[in-house]
């Protein structure tokens, strides 16, 4: 029983990342009609926002310690952080320790800037071009972005730990009399994803801006004829989608050490999530994200594993079945992807 619950938790955890990325993808497709293959790169840039802030906060100066030797036998240069020197080891150390949560704020202007630059600088020129052109150009952009990150940060993964207080395991099964332990940060990630998804839905549902955007998604031309600059709002939505993907990456950094390729690892899966959920359907993207995350988790569990590698293909098998039986996806609008 406890293993079963653990696999559900694993699935929700994986699904959180899928849902956050797919949510942004769907927002962009629903508003701008663009198939954005560079969206995974936004996730990766978000993760590197964590790395960058962590490095900024850990900026250090060197002092020579003559009592110790380095690998060449010279006096050892010992690094001390400015943060701890200025604010003392307690406060300075705590700020460094909490660099990943702080990166949520740090990433907002960066992701908005990257999102707007991406949309205004490149993607807007491909609105009226076929989807194949959009895929090619955004895929190319994704490769360029990841190579830029590799150039700056190298190819090795960079450990970016969660705050010490959230690095332990949480005891969850007490009430059920089960022994269930789960990493605290993964629980944080799940609840953070839920809060972000809830925030995006509330923004679209309960604000005037959101109402206009939803109207534009339904009928862009009519909204435009009413004198509303829908293009500007859609650009803002692109920036919001970039921030959502960036946050998914920021908070994912302690789960798996960020590397320049991580965006690509999630990109294709997230597209499948969007297709399974229904192109343009925000609730569909979220539901499919969690559903496929759980399916993938169970497929890698030995008890359900029919053959090795099932977990690597289960999502695609489901996508094939969905596309054959319900081309519009689980919650897609009638007519979309059905012609």
């Amino acid at each position: 029983m406890s293993e079963f619950i653990l696999q559900i938790l694993n699935g929700l955890d994986k699904g959180s990342a899928y849902a956050l990325i797919a949510l942004g993808l769907t927002l962009i497709f629903g508003t701008l009609g663009v198939v954005n293959f560079a969206h995974g790169a936004l996730f990766m840039i978000g993760a590197f926002c964590s790395v960058t802030l962590s490095r900024i906060l850990s900026a250090s100066y060197e002092t020579v310690d003559p009592t110790q030797k380095d690998f060449l036998g010279n006096p050892l240069k010992v690094k001390s952080t400015y943060m701890e020197s200025w604010l003392g080891p307690d406060i300075g150390g705590a700020i460094i320790d909490w660099s990943v949560p702080l990166a949520i704020l740090f990433s907002i202007p960066i992701m908005i800037a990257v999102g707007i630059a991406m949309e205004r600088g490149l993607i807007k020129h491909f609105y009226k071009r076929p989807h194949a052109d959009q895929i090619l150009v955004t895929f190319g952009l994704a490769i360029i972005l990841q190579e830029i990150i590799r150039g700056f940060y190298g190819a090795n993964p960079i450990q970016t730990p969660a705050p010490e207080a959230l690095s332990s395991v949480a005891q969850l099964g007490g009430a059920l009399g089960l022994e269930i332990v789960y990493p605290a940060w993964r629980m944080v990630y799940f609840f953070f994803a839920l809060a972000t998804i809830g925030g995006v839905f509330a923004f679209l549902q309960f604000t005037t801006f959101g109402m206009v955007v939803r109207a534009g998604m339904a009928d862009r031309e009519t909204v435009g004829l009413m004198g509303i600059n829908i293009d500007r709002r859609f650009t803002i939505m692109f920036a919001i989608a970039a921030v959502v993907a960036g946050w998914a990456g920021v908070m994912y950094a302690p789960i798996n050490a960020p590397n320049y390729h991580m965006g690509m690892d999630f990109l294709v899966l997230s597209f499948v999530v969007v297709v399974v959920g229904g192109m343009g359907s925000l609730p569909g993207a979220v539901a499919a994200g969690f559903l496929l995350g759980i399916l993938e988790s169970f497929a890698s569990w030995e008890r359900f594993k029919v053959f090795d590698g099932l977990d690597q293909i289960i999502i695609y098998l489901v996508a094939i079945i969905i596309l054959l039986t319900r081309p519009r996806g689980l919650m897609g609008k009638k007519g979309v992807m059905e012609d």
């Binding site: 293993e3 696999q7 694993n10 955890d13 991580m262």
Partner: peptide, 11 residues
Amino acid sequence: AATDFSSYITP
């Protein structure tokens, strides 16, 4: 190609 090993670790 696996990146997240949580499903393999929990068993």
